[in-house]
Design a protein around this nucleic acid. Structure first.
Length: 873
RNA sequence: GCUGGUGUGGUGGAAUGGUAUACACACAGGACUUAAAAUUCUGCGCCGCUAGCCCGGCUUGUGGGUUCGAGUCCCACCACCAGCACCA
């Protein structure tokens, strides 16, 4: 019996314990049955669920439940991306060990997830900070090392000179260390790298086959991988000997640069190298001003944003190099806009056809020589225009004049090759993946340093290298460096005392293969044959912010594991849904000294102007103004998050799920507002009350006999089936907001039947059954309860997915709109299947249409069958 | 700076190149109530008039273009969001 009032707390607890008791979501391999692996990106256990999680996991749950109703064997697992920086930050702030903090958070967040009613197989839960998981990171590392996929080289990091520690990019604020306020420096340290570039070609090519990925994400990855065809060009040099210094170098040699614009070679007016380039360092031996400049270039962080937006600075080395074609002397400069990590760490500068070279040349009075005829003119540029960098025909280039881009590149390259000063080369923007982190809370890198034998890999039988659980970082570097129990070990080769590597792995390693481990979470090897049943992931769902790094690393690791023979597939994710971000307004005040204080929405008062825009914001505690920082992703640090827990507590999980799915389509960013929340709750209550009111009639109703339907009931049935038809289409394209709108339309139509009769009761029974099944993936608790109580079946989870009755959708009369010259002027009703000529005539005779065609002749009539007639005159 | 997106009523949003504003929220008015809440009914882009229940004009960030027809396709611009390799 359904009670009169809707009590979500009660029915949600009941449904959840039913699922638990029946082990409804426990999954096992069923060879021969179609499987569907539905996976959401696993969360970082930050402490509490946020709205982005609710959105992500609701979308995944809706898809999983839908596939189940279509008859698939659905796997939806969940786990924890449990290593990472926030645990160390929490440790510093509260003195609690990262492990305790992390496990407490996992316990709490698991409860929160369970209260959302997600159809998750919790038997497969994993956490990357557990030794049973991260030991396989170490195992993979060793396999990569054996195959040369892991190698050692130096890399640039942010260095805090006061704390003597490496900082993450987010710990650098305005070029200063977050705790010390010291100006951050770039520092080169040795790191282990994964050679993802070995797979660059395959990672690029296979993007094309990923038909289940959006073009947007594929394009982002394509540009990230950044294949470019170009030429490596050598500029010979003969250097004067300088005073002996730190850097020694061959006095005659060749400086190599990479360019995609070899056609502009005759327009080169200077060469620029990065501050870390050997030639720059050599020049600094005898030039203290230059040495200072190079030192100054070390200031600031290592992010691409910082490097590419800094003011252009440069200084001549005093050296020259020779142009490989003309033998002309070209000045050699050090410039901060040239990056050592990309290409050769040196560029040939063509100020007339490259914007960065142009502004640098202008700033330092270097010559600008146009060599390409562009649409602009052949004049020397004074103010930069983008067309200067277009392809064109060579001018001022001697024997190459008149050649177009392709021919000029070919001719110039051929000449360079004959001199030994050039080669065609493909380069990639993609760089190898540095995985070493100077941090405690991560997977220990399984290497042992022996004074005699060097860096020795830990043998497989000694895995895992266990991370001590109780350490508490204090901000002054990695506590593993001071932990003798961990540090001291025996060299696996010579058994002498040795020292463990204390760097840990980037947490992206953890998340690059966890989706495989879900198939065999209890295996005593990395994977077993169950992986072949479940993989690939049929639907992967996660935030758009992971469109590049995580997804690229996961694709790379999948390919590597295929090459190891562990799996048969090359691509892990058949279909990818990238949900938009959940955004909210940001409010802040600049702090006294530095930094920014953010305000929670509860602590401020906002007034709007007549247009609804924010006019002023004040802090309720002191009535003084607070600045409005626009809109941005919900984050703890900006204090603009909305806690889903209060929402669930107040309205129930179904309301939370319904509201967030109704607010916007999944791929779109969602600007938070509680405005629609009560509407979602109201809709659920209306469903409940409808079911309660008609429960006896529906329970006893007979199967619908369409012959006894009256005309008004036929019209209602048309509305219901038509809304269902559209909603099903929307479901297939994951437009859940319009699916819900369709459900609302069905309920509105059901509500139109005022009188009780055999026919109307049967129609109620049919319509409500469709509504319940259609929305059960989105609002599983309320539909579970009503489905059972009204005697539709045992479990809506396994009910058949609804289908509209084609007969209900047949119309005898069709409404068509009539346009004159594209403007709406009237409507006509014609019997279905009316001949086109008759329709045209009817359109011209339609009321109100006549006045617009009077006195003119209809030149053309366009008829869109069943929809529209456009009279052109 | 580079790369990828987004922009529609007071608000969230809807619309295979074919009726712009579905479905909701908010708001206003009516009913119910001693009252309020809840519920329910009606109205709701802007402007105009000859006020039509099939009136007319304008309207999808701005300015152009393609088309019988553009929110949708193309070009330019503006604003906002995300990513940029050590946040995850």
């Amino acid at each position: 019996m359904i009670s009169e009032s809707y009590n979500p707390q009660l029915i949600e607890a009941e449904a959840q314990s039913y699922w638990e008791k029946h082990r409804s979501f426990t999954t096992c391999e069923e060879p021969g049955r179609d499987k569907f692996y539905c996976l959401c990106m696993f969360p970082y256990p930050s402490g509490r669920l946020h709205m982005g999680h609710v959105r992500n996991y609701t979308i995944g749950d809706v898809i999983a439940r839908h596939q189940r109703m279509l008859g698939k064997n659905v796997l939806q697992p969940m786990g924890w991306d449990a290593f990472g920086l926030p645990a160390e930050n929490a440790a510093m702030a509260c003195g609690v060990a990262p492990s305790k903090w992390t496990y407490d958070n996992i316990a709490y967040m698991k409860k929160q997830l369970q209260s959302l009613g997600l159809a998750i197989d919790w038997d497969r839960e994993l956490a990357t900070c557990k030794r049973e998981y991260y030991r396989w990171n170490q195992w993979l590392f060793l396999r990569m090392l054996e195959r040369g996929i892991i190698y050692l080289k130096t890399g640039l990091v942010n260095w805090d000179p006061v704390d003597q520690t490496v900082l993450a990019n987010e710990q650098v604020i305005d070029g200063r260390g977050w705790r010390t306020g010291a100006i951050v420096e770039k520092k080169e340290i040795p790191m282990y790298y994964m050679a993802i570039t070995r797979y660059a070609e395959e990672l690029l090519d296979e993007l094309e086959q990923l038909s289940g990925w959006s073009e947007q994400v594929k394009l982002m990855q394509k540009h990230w991988i950044g294949k470019s065809h170009g030429v490596r060009i050598g500029f010979p040099y003969q250097l004067p000997s300088t005073v002996p210094g730190v850097v020694e170098i061959d006095l005659s040699g060749i400086l190599w640069v990479f360019t995609t614009r070899a056609d502009t070679l005759l327009g080169v007016t200077y060469i620029a190298v990065s501050a870390e380039h050997p030639l720059a360092l050599y020049a600094a031996n005898s030039n203290s001003e230059l040495a200072n400049f190079i030192k100054e270039c070390r200031r600031g962080g290592v992010t691409e944003v910082e490097l590419t937006t800094q003011d252009k600075k440069g200084m001549p080395t005093g050296f020259t190099v020779y142009h490989p074609i003309t033998n002309e002397s070209l000045p050699l400069w050090v410039a901060n806009y040239v990056l050592m990590g990309y290409g050769e760490g040196a560029v040939m500068a063509v100020p007339a056809h490259d914007e960065r070279d142009f502004s640098f040349a202008q700033q330092f009075g270097l010559p600008i020589k146009p060599v390409i005829h562009t649409c602009a003119s052949d004049e020397t540029p004074v103010v930069w225009q983008d067309i200067y960098s277009e392809h064109g025909v060579c001018v001022n280039s001697g024997k190459y004049d008149g050649l177009d881009f392709d021919r000029a590149v070919d001719a110039i390259t051929a000449d360079l090759i004959s001199k030994g000063l050039g080669e065609k080369k493909v380069t990639w923007r993609l760089r190898d993946w540095g995985i070493s982190r100077q941090r405690y809370w991560g997977t220990p890198i399984p290497i042992i340093h022996c004074q005699k034998c060097g860096a020795i890999p830990v043998p497989d039988e000694q895995l895992p290298v266990v991370l001590p659980q109780h350490l508490i970082p204090d901000g002054s570097g990695n506590p593993l460096d001071k932990h003798n129990e961990f540090l001291n070990c025996a060299c696996p080769k010579c058994s002498n005392p040795a020292r463990r590597e204390t760097d840990t792995m980037d947490t992206f390693v953890d998340s690059s293969w966890y989706f495989l481990r879900y198939s065999a979470p209890d295996a005593d090897k990395i994977l077993d044959k169950r992986v072949d049943y479940w993989m690939p992931v049929d639907q992967y769902i996660g935030g758009i912010e992971h469109a590049i790094l995580h997804l690229l690393y996961a694709r790379f690791c999948t390919k590597f594991m295929r090459d190891l023979g562990l799996i048969k597939i090359s691509e892990p994710f058949t279909n990818l849904l990238t949900q938009g971000m959940v955004l909210n307004h940001i409010f802040f005040r600049k702090g006294e000294k530095s930094g920014i204080n953010y305000y929670r929405t509860d602590d401020i008062k906002i007034s709007h102007d007549v247009h609804g825009k924010i006019a002023s914001v004040i802090d309720v505690s002191d009535d003084l103004p607070v600045e409005y920082g626009g809109i941005g992703t919900m984050s703890k640090s900006r204090k603009n998050g909305v806690d889903p827990q209060t929402l669930i507590k107040k309205f129930g999980a179904d309301t939370a799920r319904l509201f967030i799915m109704f607010a916007a389509p999944p791929e779109q960013d969602l600007e938070w507002s509680d405005a629609g929340l009560s509407g979602a709750y109201r809709f659920l209550r209306r469903i409940w009350i409808y079911a309660a009111e008609h429960q006896d009639a529906i329970r006893t109703a007979s199967v619908l006999n369409t012959n006894i339907l009256t005309e008004p009931l036929k019209a209602v049935r048309y509305e219901i089936h038509n809304a269902l038809r559209q909603a099903l289409l929307d479901f297939n394209r994951y437009r859940f907001n319009t699916v819900i709108a369709g459900g609302m339309k069905i309920l509105n139509s059901l509500g139109k039947m005022e009188y009780s009769s055999d026919a109307s009761n049967s129609l109620r029974r049919e319509g409500l059954s469709m509504l319940l099944r259609l929305l059960s993936p989105i609002i599983p608790h309320i539909t579970h309860k009503i489905w059972r109580e009204l005697g539709y079946g045992k479990d809506v989870l396994d009910a058949a997915w609804p289908e509209p009755d084609e007969a209900a959708l047949e119309k005898t009369l069709v409404t068509m709109v009539v346009q004159v010259n594209g403007k709406l002027r009237g409507k006509i009703e014609v019997p279905a299947g009316t001949e086109i000529e008759v329709i045209k005539k009817a359109a011209q005779d339609a009321p109100n249409v006549n006045q617009f065609i009077q006195g003119r002749s209809v030149l053309k009539t366009i008829v869109v069958p069943g929809k529209l007639i456009n009279l052109v005159c």
